[in-house]
Design a protein around this nucleic acid. Structure first.
Lengths: 204, 204, 204, 204
DNA sequence: GGGTAATCGAGACGGTACGTCGTGTCTTTCC
DNA sequence: GGAAAGACACGACGTACCGTCTCGATTACCC
């Protein structure tokens, strides 16, 4: 309260996050991304409105729009913050894929899954989100394809097979489980799926 | 409507679709579903609002809410209308799957794809749509699984493999292409994918 | 509170003013006009925002915009509600004008003054308000001109003088006092002004 | 910037008006007042926002707020720049008033009218503007009252009449025309009004 | 003549209000 | 009693300004 501005109170309680000059205030960016993540975690996409994010982050709506052109852009930024990009390299494609899928399902079981589901949903009606999802998916196919390329180099996989095709087979399976809310999965089932894929690309 | 067809009124112009008594008017239901499908075809999910459907179908909003509890329910009804359930049986699993996928991609290239994408999107935030999508996906896995079961019976596939797992591998691949707007696909790519799957489940 | 919805409380506390069918709900209109008047009385023009009116009247903004195209339109409606249009006819122009001015100043000392000042202010930047103010002022000049016309008929005023010109002289004086916040006025001052005008139009 | 003044760059273009040390930069003040006047002339009060003035004057908003505490203060400063204070002295009150009113209407037909209307409008909700308008109006009544005082000295007007009251009658008429956007006026109408006033204050 | 202090532009900040759109509920009137 | 019509409260949308702030740069003034 400004009533006690005359007292010698040394800490005027930083209740407002003012500008730090003609430059972006990282505190605001953090607060906004955090609020966005929290809202998604609590209520999913429907709870994730610019209005609600602003309210929660104690930020002005224009501050959000200044840095993120749309709800979608903010959504993507939240996902990038969560994203883990550890790709296993165990020396055997079967364990590589099993570890990869197990980790992915574990990540998606937390906030990551909610956010990514939201992005996919958004991408079905929003062009920007669609383009972003396409780009992201392509990048991921490429990364996951590395697992296959290493297998090809080791002679575990035929070389006349496009690694991205295999990657999409794997990620398609994962997406299907995510989108139908069936992330709880037996290790045996993952292994069963991985075995089909590995058998399918084995030489001879 | 021709209720006053005997009068000399030259332009009766079906401008109003009144009640037909204490029962559901199928004309209204048709008009609503048609308007919904048209809107989806023209503008995708964003264009598909109860408000817009009512406007286009010249129906009152309460009439829609009386018969469909939510946007999602109407969406599902539209999809059911479009749905084709022809499953090929050519005697060889590879051609079965190729024909199936080719047909599915063709169907999705039209209105079907837009509607199904919308349902998946909706299912990510709406519980009803989620349950409906889960049920529908399970049913489809079962149907597609038949292709695998027949292959197992013919000795084309190992019998220790769950047909539904294979089905999900196939549909996951298709969903992935649908959701990233990459339905335009070379026949060779489909065949490449099918070969991986078939090799993966081949006996020995 | 909905917590005690299970109790046998027979009066669910009409806290929401629902639609009464496909027609305007006079309760809403009343509540909106009342809220608008209250806000004007309390904080003047700055406090009078559509947002604030909606909040106070517990009405939706679209409900306001449905019936009043702009802030200005609502403002004019509020004034019409307050407006008194009693024009004195005492048989002598001097007392007619004195009574008229005294009554007008008294009316403007209350809410009427705040509202009319706001309308004049609004009219300086808003075309609609400008047109409305012009029309209103013209009508008032005509009415006030009646006092002069009766005086002309009685031989108290020259007939080669435009009654509207006299009316504007009178209303201009009143506006000037209103707009400079000098409504508190000695009866003698009113009489002094009226005498100038009456002398100015006297025959001979 | 002149950093490369030695290069053959032919257009240094004073694109930035930097500080001239710990003192007010008159160039900035000029640019701001000019921009404000231009905006008022072009779009009236609605176009006159601090934001727009700063943009147009290529000034920082704090520079404006440092020297003018509010929109109103800037508005008043603009008016002071425009103000003409020529009061006629022809030796006859009727021609004095006619000339005065004719000149005033002419001045108001240009930018002066827009600015003064804006000040009156602003004064209806802003206390500072209200006080400023009151002070200004009092001063003007005094000046205009001089015309009457001279007439009294010449025996053209009764001495028991307050000159300020006459002045307000005249200015009230003018304000009324300004505020209702009826500045285009026949000389005969001005003369008619002036005759009423002069007759009204004539001795006997 | 070097340090200090106030100025300048720029623009980000938290807010408030704007006017529009869609939501799901409600009621009236017509068949 | 179903259907069209459309009003209702609500709340999110994306934009414009508000008035405050902090920055880095640019001088003028005073020690």
């Amino acid at each position: 309260m400004p009533e006690n501005a005359m007292t010698e109170n040394p800490t005027p309680q930083v209740q407002r996050r003012a500008s730090i000059g003609a430059q972006r205030n990282p505190q605001s960016a953090d607060a906004i991304l955090q609020a966005a993540a929290d809202l998604l975690a609590e209520g999913g996409l429907p709870a994730f409105s610019i209005e609600a994010v602003a309210r929660r982050a104690k930020a002005g709506k224009p501050t959000i729009y200044r840095w993120w052109p749309s709800r979608t852009a903010l959504l993507l930024d939240v996902y990038k913050r969560q994203k883990q990009t550890a790709y296993p390299d165990t020396g055997a494609i079967e364990t590589d894929l099993s570890v990869f899928l197990t980790g992915l399902f574990a990540f998606w079981t937390g906030l990551g899954g909610t956010v990514f589901r939201s992005i996919i949903a958004q991408a079905q009606s929003d062009e920007d989100a669609g383009a972003a999802l396409q780009a992201y998916a392509a990048e991921r196919r490429n990364y996951t394809g590395q697992i296959v390329r290493r297998a090809q180099a080791r002679g575990e996989a035929r070389t006349d097979i496009a690694p991205e095709l295999v990657a999409e087979t794997v990620s398609g399976f994962a997406w299907s489980r995510l989108l139908t809310d069936r992330l709880v999965i037996e290790p045996a089932e993952i292994e069963g799926f991985v075995r089909i894929v590995c058998n399918g690309i084995k030489p001879r």
